[in-house]
């Protein structure tokens, strides 16, 4: 079955997998904590996109409500996370995770 004319759920599965992988790549590759944070947002959005596609596939509104809650949690996460980053920057003068290695043995 097609979600929109010519596009099936498989297309959205692939697109979401690509976006999620790019986000994971960013978390692994970059060392700036803010960029890593943005890549986490990208991964969250890949999942949201797939949830909306599946809600269309199954004609179920609950998935879109779940996306709504994910957005609320992401907003809360960003507020607290950026506050933590600000505090780290104020104490360590950097957001580079290569320098912030005091908990690494």
């Amino acid at each position: 079955m097609e979600i929109i004319p010519g596009i099936t759920i498989n297309h959205y599965l692939i697109v979401s997998a690509i976006l999620f992988s790019i986000g994971a790549l960013g978390v692994m590759m970059r060392r700036n904590a803010i960029i890593m944070f943005m890549c986490i947002e990208l991964m969250l959005n890949a999942v949201n996109l797939l949830l909306v596609a599946f809600s269309k596939q199954w004609a179920d509104t609950s998935a879109q409500v779940l996306v709504f809650f994910i957005m609320a949690v992401a907003a809360a996460e960003v507020a607290v996370g950026l506050a933590i980053l600000m505090m780290i920057y104020r104490n360590a003068r950097t957001t580079d995770t290569e320098v912030l290695n005091k908990l690494k043995w």
Binding site: A72, A75, A76, L82, A83, M86, M87
Partner: peptide, 12 residues
């Protein structure tokens, strides 16, 4: 949750 996050962000 949003209220708690707001309080936490302000405190931090």
């Amino acid at each position: 949750l949003l209220l708690a996050a707001m309080v936490g962000a302000v405190y931090l």
